[in-house]
Design a protein around this nucleic acid. Structure first.
Length: 569
RNA sequence: GCACCGGUAGUCUAGUGGCAGGACAUGGGCCUUCCAAGCCCAUAGCCCGGGUUCAAAUCCCGGUCGGUGCACCA
């Protein structure tokens, strides 16, 4: 099945390996004319559904970002997989996983490489395949990000983004301005992302350069609620973590029920509902579709709950979209690492007055007395005032600096309890992220549309693509390329194109052959100009899936096609 | 990264030391009044590099790409 689809994809111009004139590069594909058109239609549909209809914004950020971004995001650490190669059997293993299996260490990924090497030697960890000792064997790093240098020299390292999301997070302070500092708001981005996969597989299913369509929906976790009523009746197949852990099975329930019973977080549930309807509309076979919850151990470093949209293609379940509750992880990390603040000011309904203990240390006393410790003492006093104001009740207050207690006279601390009026507070929004893999969606839509059937005893290969996403909407043919039929057909082509249709003209070979060509690229409608057309200005419209024909006046073609398309999406 | 299998026109494939064949597709012509019809012509190929040999698509080595399994998959 997959071989024939991949063969068709190449032959008809959907996708094919890139740079094959130079031997090719694994994990990189070029979309041909049909594939590029299909991709464009799918992306336009995504934009319509997840940005326009939701009232979200779209941005377009660079694919290269400086190293510091990924230090903050955690990708630099979690992308550095530690690999140790067995000297005897040459098998490669994740060194941190070996350590975790052999010791009580739960998170060896956070250890340094030398510490992992030492631990391997100490516990005499052996190769799981052949039993050879790995003590003393070098642990090496394999980074899944593509690195590059920004500008000349190597002083300014950068990376190709491994997800489009970071391009949204790092611009948060600008984006919140555009949202007029009001939560909730959503920012989407469509673009390429890069991962230096160890082993690209299955044509465009696992590649090194791919297109993501990601939405980051920033919410106030305390006050914002998703508009669940819009999708509460949508029934979705859910394969929960607990079902996977036990013998449970995929269970179909409505979004309303899933949210109400707490099986799925409300926000995630909302997007599961929206996405399920969208997937069906673009041509995913919903009988081979499910939402699968991540098991606790497979959650990524930033995610507290995650559901994947999965589809069955070629007999395997693959991930199409991750719906992740990223919490405040990303914004908090950037807040910590970057110069800007990644928070948003939330005004209270009524300003509140609070008593706030403060200190104003007299540095002209502390400085001469404690020298270089003075600054640290002042900091400790501030912390103490906030955390334990009662400590300032006596004549002196004791603070601990570098493990030594210092006794400070209260009168030089400037301790006071002030009444302050607060009109709001700075909060770090939470993030709900639906992250779509577009290349996998393209493959899925093709695979689910692919069929081989028989018409009048002849085998036929067809793509049953939805008219809304098919690369070509109408094929126009003259029955014969003579007697003025071709000219009349060309007129109809021009007219349909001016009405916004993607039209393909073909007068080569027998009529049946031309229908077959369009069937293979999923064109839903074919218009044929015959001798009768010259007399009464009618044409036949042939529908791809049924191959049934209907005679329609040329003037009514537009109306006819449009009603067909809206009925069938 | 490891292992196994494979790579011959756009696609599918025959050829396993001695002139690289076919089918489909594509282009041109003839024919043709609605589902891959027929005839003629044309275009177009041995993954890359090294080695063995008088001679390599064929045998050997290395690489690369693809498929599969292991590992990996934020």
């Amino acid at each position: 099945m997959s071989e024939r689809l991949v063969e068709l994809a190449k032959r008809r111009g959907f996708f094919f390996p890139a740079s094959s004139a130079y031997g090719g590069t694994a994990g990189f594909y070029t979309y041909g004319p049909q594939g590029a058109a299909l991709k464009r239609n799918l992306l336009e549909s995504w934009r319509e559904q997840f940005l326009t209809k939701e009232g979200h914004m779209e941005i377009d950020a660079p694919t290269v970002m400086p190293e510091s971004v990924f230090e903050a995001s955690g990708h630099l650490d979690t992308f550095d997989d530690m690999i140790v190669e067995c000297p005897a059997c040459e098998a490669s293993h994740r060194a941190d996983h070996l350590v975790e299996d052999a010791t009580d260490i739960a998170d060896a990924e956070g250890m340094s490489m030398s510490a992992v090497e030492e631990t391997i030697a100490e516990h005499d960890i052996r190769c799981p395949d052949c039993g050879e000792s790995l003590a003393g064997v070098e642990v090496s790093a394999f980074n899944l990000m593509f690195g590059t240098n920004i500008g000349p020299g190597s002083s300014s390292p950068g990376y190709l983004r491994p997800e489009t999301a970071q391009g949204i997070f790092v611009e948060f302070s600008q984006l919140k301005e555009y949202a007029r500092n009001q939560l909730p708001f959503g920012v989407g981005q469509i673009g390429r992302a890069y991962r230096n996969e160890i082993s690209p597989r299955r044509s465009i299913v696992r590649v090194r350069e791919f297109t993501q369509a990601e939405l980051e929906h920033f919410i106030d976790p305390e006050t914002d609620e998703p508009p669940l009523s819009r999708v509460e009746e949508v029934a979705v197949p859910l394969y929960s973590a607990s079902a996977q852990a036990g013998d449970g099975e995929t269970e179909t329930m409505t979004i309303g029920a899933a949210a109400e019973t707490g099986v799925v977080d409300d926000w995630i549930a909302y997007y599961l509902g929206v996405a399920a309807e969208w997937y069906e509309r673009v041509g995913v076979d919903m009988d081979r579709f499910r939402y699968r919850q991540h098991q606790p151990e497979e959650l990524s470093h930033y995610s507290s709950d995650c559901w994947d949209a999965e589809v069955e293609v070629d007999g395997n379940w693959i991930e199409l979209t991750g719906f992740s509750y990223r919490g405040s992880y990303d914004l908090s990390k950037h807040d910590e690492y970057a110069d800007e603040e990644f928070t948003l000011f939330r005004q209270y309904d009524e300003p509140i007055t609070v008593e706030r203990p403060t200190v104003d240390p007299d540095m002209s006393v502390l400085g001469p007395e404690y020298g270089s410790e003075a600054a640290a003492i002042a900091e400790e006093l501030q912390r103490l005032a906030t955390g334990n104001p009662d400590a300032f009740e006596g004549d002196t207050v004791t603070v601990s600096v570098d493990g030594e207690d210092r006794s400070i006279p209260v009168d030089v601390t400037g301790f006071a309890v002030e009444e302050v009026t607060e009109s709001g507070e700075h909060i770090t929004p939470h993030v709900v992220e639906p992250s779509f893999g577009i290349d996998r969606l393209i493959y899925t839509v093709l695979e689910h549309a692919y069929r081989e059937d028989e018409v009048d005893g002849e085998p036929r290969t067809a793509l049953g693509l939805r008219p809304g996403v098919a690369p070509t909407t109408v094929g126009v043919f003259p029955l014969m390329a003579k007697d003025g039929l071709a000219d009349r057909a060309q007129e109809i082509v021009r007219r349909l194109r001016s009405e916004g249709y993607t039209v393909s003209y073909d007068d080569s070979g027998a009529i049946g052959r031309r229908y077959r060509r369009q069937d293979e690229i999923g064109t839903p409608y074919c218009v044929t100009v015959d001798y009768e057309s010259l007399e009464d200005d009618t044409v036949t419209v042939r529908e791809r899936d049924s191959t049934a024909q209907e005679r329609v006046a040329v003037d009514e073609l537009h109306t006819h096609l449009r009603s067909r398309m809206t009925n069938r999406q």
